Amino acid sequence: MLIRMLTLTKALFDQIVAHSRADHPDEACGVVAGPAGTGRPERFIPMLNAARSPTFYEFDSADLLTLYREMDDRDEEPVIIYHSHTATEAYPSRTDLSYANEPGAHYVLVSTADTDGAGPFQFRSFRIVDGTVTEEDVKVVDAY
Rank of each mutant, 00 (worst) to 15 (best):
R4K: 09
L6T: 01
L6I: 00
A11H: 01
F13E: 12
D14W: 01
Q15R: 14
V17N: 03
V17L: 10
A18G: 09
H19S: 08
H19M: 02
S20V: 05
R21W: 05
R21S: 14
R21I: 07
D26R: 03
A28Y: 05
A28G: 14
G30C: 04
G30T: 05
V31W: 01
V31D: 04
V31H: 05
P35R: 15
G37W: 09
G39E: 04
I45K: 07
I45E: 09
P46G: 06
L48T: 15
N49C: 08
A50R: 13
A50P: 04
S53C: 12
S53R: 10
T55Y: 13
Y57L: 03
E58T: 10
E58K: 15
F59N: 05
F59Q: 04
D60V: 11
A62V: 14
L64S: 14
L65Y: 11
T66H: 09
T66A: 14
T66P: 00
R69T: 08
M71N: 10
M71H: 05
D73M: 11
V79R: 01
I81F: 02
I81D: 05
I81Q: 06
Y82D: 07
H83R: 09
H85A: 11
E89K: 08
A90I: 13
Y91M: 07
T95P: 00
T95F: 08
S98R: 14
S98P: 02
Y99H: 13
N101V: 12
E102V: 12
A105V: 05
H106A: 13
H106F: 13
H106S: 12
V110F: 01
S111V: 08
T112F: 00
A113G: 07
A113F: 04
T115F: 05
A118E: 15
P120R: 08
Q122H: 05
F123W: 05
S125A: 15
S125Q: 01
R127M: 12
R127P: 00
I128A: 07
I128Y: 02
D130G: 11
T132L: 12
T134V: 11
E135I: 04
V138R: 04
K139P: 00
D142A: 13
A143W: 13
Y144N: 03
Y144D: 10
